[in-house]
Design a protein around this nucleic acid. Structure first.
Lengths: 338, 338
DNA sequence: CTGTTAGCGCCTTCAT
DNA sequence: ATGAAGGCGCTAACAG
């Protein structure tokens, strides 16, 4: 397994290594014949430039580090798909790390990526600590946060408007006549969970509905968390007539719990999720949810990062907030209509 | 954004670059004091080895190339999760490429990976052409196929036993009294689709049930394909009383079509999927399916690849076939029992 | 035990 | 239009 190098091509073509380099790079000062010859030989020998050598020399690796919290989560999988496509289209490769929401792994991942000399970093931060990212920021290394951000950190990010999304979701319920609306929130150190909670509260207040502490359940991420929260929810009195969940994942768990206890959706309880993952249309009761442009989130993050790479060092802390849509399916209905 | 190099550490510690190298590498011939000093300085300066330089010099990059056909597909997302975890645990990074089932992209991806000088390749082949992979094989470059294989190619792979899985699925239906069993197959250039079809046929024959051409629908991959196939299925006379689908994805599409037409599952038609992806337990009718160990598939592939890297060049074409399980949920029931 | 030398493959001067 | 020289950061081989 020996790779063909420029030297091999040079020898075979009877020119210097340098000439091969310029010919392959499309530099102007190479005679057409020489260029043709070089290209022919390179092709014939199956020459592939060594990205390591190139990166070492030029300080550009054309690879981006992507750090996500859980690639098995369909939400992040879609996001990564968007990242991969766009990066590839621009000639960049991607190095992937999965932190499993573990801040230690995140820190480690960042170190590894830096050691790999990626040109920039795209990260979905765990957010239970921010030290590692603050250091990266301070060092001036280019990176963009995806899907989550630190409100008080001057770092570039691409997210969706989760406050607005939550408002849309909750107002949809309010418009259907619901007033006893519960919220199963996510882990509040995560910005999206925080924002969705704010949106929920804002929407209620906007419509003169009192926010009840006991209607807000917390820290649900997995489907199982949702299931447990769903069971809890059903103990509440007065029983909520609608629930807004942090994510579709959580919503499906809640749905499971509700149906299991013999309640009907939406006849007894309406349910709204968030994300619109692949399967939300096919759950027991097709889920009304907030659609967020997952791939676009990824591709926009790449675009922002590449832009900051282009105009060198200066990565002024840009931020982009993408819009979201309400997708009405069967899990929500008018209050009291059975 | 200037990286700290060994030279910086050497200067600061008052030793030679080489000494820094040996100290950091844990080589024996360095005095304890010198080592301590070097480590301290490296730490203080925030030294991170440059993997490019290291790779260039040592011909080992400690990165693995991972090529999948669709990272947004929960099946592959899980697979990649397994790969990532295991690779990381062994000190390897992973470079990810998504081919979207496009053979051209696959070929390109392989070239890029080779240019990146990955130590080995893990690939879920598109299988509509094999030229590119044959070349890799011939070159002796280490790689392992995941989830799909070429029956007549002497290349290492890790797959699940899909023939057996299909037999289990179909025999489950037969045991429930079904004899008019249809199969919605996948694209037959993909080995798993081929194997599942074989298993289906084998199971029928084994039980003396005639295989009817018209009961075998083909080339379904997406949920939409499944939906269309489902509609077709319902036109068949005599109407099948059970359907075995290529994948859960396809099965969910079929389910949608069946329910939409007013048939009941499993009362009118039983349905079995394949893969047991995350959501199969939460579909309208929870899906009976074949569980395949997705993460294990990934981690086993990594293990096999690393083993072949360890014993240098020689990558004798090993093959590993993992077992699968039947997961009975609500989509299958005894024939004729309503 | 430590330092010097060389070279991995490429690209950027600088000469010719 | 082409070649020679140097160096990116690191490690292996050889001195001392």
């Amino acid at each position: 397994m020996n790779h063909v190098t420029m030297r091999d091509v040079a020898r075979e073509a009877g020119v210097s290594v340098n000439t091969v380099s310029r010919a392959l790079a499309g530099k102007p000062d190479v005679s057409p014949q020489t260029r043709a010859k070089v290209l022919e030989v390179a092709e014939r020998l199956g020459y592939r430039p060594n990205k390591l050598a190139r990166g070492l020399r030029s300080n550009k690796t054309f690879t981006l580090g992507v750090i996500v919290t859980d690639i098995a989560n369909p939400f992040f999988a879609e996001l990564v798909k968007g990242v991969e496509e766009t990066a590839r289209k621009n000639g960049y490769s991607i190095l992937l790390e999965d932190t499993s929401e573990d801040p230690k792994k995140e820190e480690k991942a960042i170190q590894v990526m830096l050691a790999e000399r990626v040109d920039g970093l795209l990260v979905t931060p765990v957010q239970s600590t921010r030290r590692a990212l603050e250091e990266v920021l301070k060092s001036g290394f280019p990176f963009v946060l995806m899907g989550r951000y630190f409100p008080d950190l001057d770092a570039p990010y691409v997210v969706t408007d989760d406050v607005q999304g939550a408002i849309i979701a909750v107002e949809h319920l309010i418009n259907l006549g619901h007033r006893k609306i519960a919220h199963v929130a996510g882990p509040l150190h995560i910005s999206s969970a925080q924002d969705r909670l704010s949106g929920y509260i804002k929407a209620l207040e906007r419509h003169g509905i009192t926010v009840r502490e006991e209607y807000i359940l917390k820290e649900a991420v997995t489907l199982e968390d949702g299931y447990r929260a769903g069971k809890e929810l059903l103990q509440l009195r007065p029983l909520p007539s609608a629930v807004f969940a942090y994510s579709d994942f959580v919503a499906v768990g809640i749905m499971q719990a509700i149906l299991e206890e013999g309640f009907r959706i939406p006849a007894d309880i309406s349910l709204v999720g968030y994300d619109d993952i692949l399967f939300s249309a096919y759950t027991k009761v097709p889920l009304t949810t907030i659609r967020i442009p997952k791939r676009t989130l990824g591709s926009e993050a790449v675009r922002m990062l590449l832009k900051s790479l282009a105009r060198k060092k200066s990565l002024s802390a840009k931020a982009k907030r993408l819009g979201v849509d309400l997708v009405v399916r069967d899990s929500t209905g008018r209050k009291g209509v059975r």
